[in-house]
Amino acid sequence: MKISKKRKIALFLITLLCIITLISYLNFRGFHAKFYNKTGKDLDSLVIAGTLIGDLKSDNSTKNIDFKKFVFDGDIPYEIISSKIKNKKVEQLNWSDCGTNIEAQTKGSYTFDIKKALDENGNTCLYLVEHNKKIFWEEK
């Protein structure tokens, strides 16, 4: 049985459309996040949720980055974050003592701000908050 040229083109286009649809579905069903550096300092060797982001200049943002999962405490991002500021290692601010609402998200698109604060010992630490929002202790 011989297949006509039009039929071959139609089968090729249908196959190509199916492949594009499948790739889009797999790509968009994961967790995607974009990060804005709101620390006022350049961040070197930035790592978020075990993923090396690299350098992020002050007041700049990353592209969308894919994660398998991302940890939240309630609706506040609570993922492990570290970087260097002027060659000094800076880690995340551990603000939650309770942890009863900690849950990992595996789907969605989010935008976060990276901010800095001082811990109880006076050390500079980093934390994440929803883009252009304030975390509960900033609202005072």
Rank of each mutant, 00 (worst) to 15 (best):
L22D: 01
I23Q: 04
S24L: 08
S24I: 05
Y25F: 14
Y25V: 10
Y25M: 04
L26A: 11
N27G: 07
N27I: 06
F28D: 13
R29A: 04
G30A: 14
G30T: 14
A33K: 02
A33G: 10
K34G: 07
K34Y: 10
F35S: 07
F35A: 07
F35Y: 15
Y36V: 02
Y36S: 10
K38A: 15
K41V: 06
K41G: 10
K41E: 15
L43N: 08
L43W: 09
L43A: 11
D44S: 11
D44I: 03
S45Q: 09
S45K: 09
L46Q: 03
L46F: 08
I48R: 03
A49Y: 08
G50L: 04
T51L: 06
T51S: 07
L52P: 03
L52G: 06
I53T: 00
G54R: 02
G54E: 02
D55N: 09
K57H: 02
K57P: 03
S58Y: 05
S58L: 05
D59F: 07
N60H: 14
N60G: 05
N60D: 14
T62A: 06
T62H: 02
K63V: 12
N64W: 08
N64R: 05
N64K: 07
N64H: 11
I65E: 00
F67E: 01
F67W: 03
K68C: 01
F70R: 00
F70V: 00
V71L: 11
D73T: 11
D75I: 13
I76T: 11
I76R: 08
P77I: 02
P77K: 02
E79L: 03
I80K: 14
S82K: 14
K84I: 02
I85S: 11
K86N: 15
N87P: 07
N87K: 12
K89N: 06
V90S: 12
V90R: 13
Q92F: 07
L93H: 10
L93E: 04
N94G: 09
N94S: 12
W95T: 00
S96P: 06
S96D: 12
S96Y: 03
D97H: 04
C98V: 05
C98H: 08
G99Y: 00
G99Q: 01
G99L: 01
T100H: 12
N101Q: 12
N101R: 13
N101G: 08
I102C: 07
E103C: 12
E103V: 15
E103H: 14
E103M: 13
A104P: 12
A104N: 11
A104C: 05
A104T: 10
Q105F: 15
K107T: 15
G108W: 08
G108Y: 09
S109D: 10
S109G: 12
S109Y: 15
S109I: 09
Y110I: 00
Y110C: 00
F112K: 00
I114G: 11
K115P: 06
K116P: 01
K116S: 15
K116M: 13
K116D: 14
K116F: 06
A117K: 12
D119V: 02
D119I: 02
D119L: 06
E120M: 15
G122L: 03
G122E: 03
T124A: 03
C125A: 10
L126T: 00
L128D: 07
V129G: 04
V129M: 02
E130Y: 05
E130H: 08
K133R: 09
K133D: 08
K134C: 05
K134V: 04
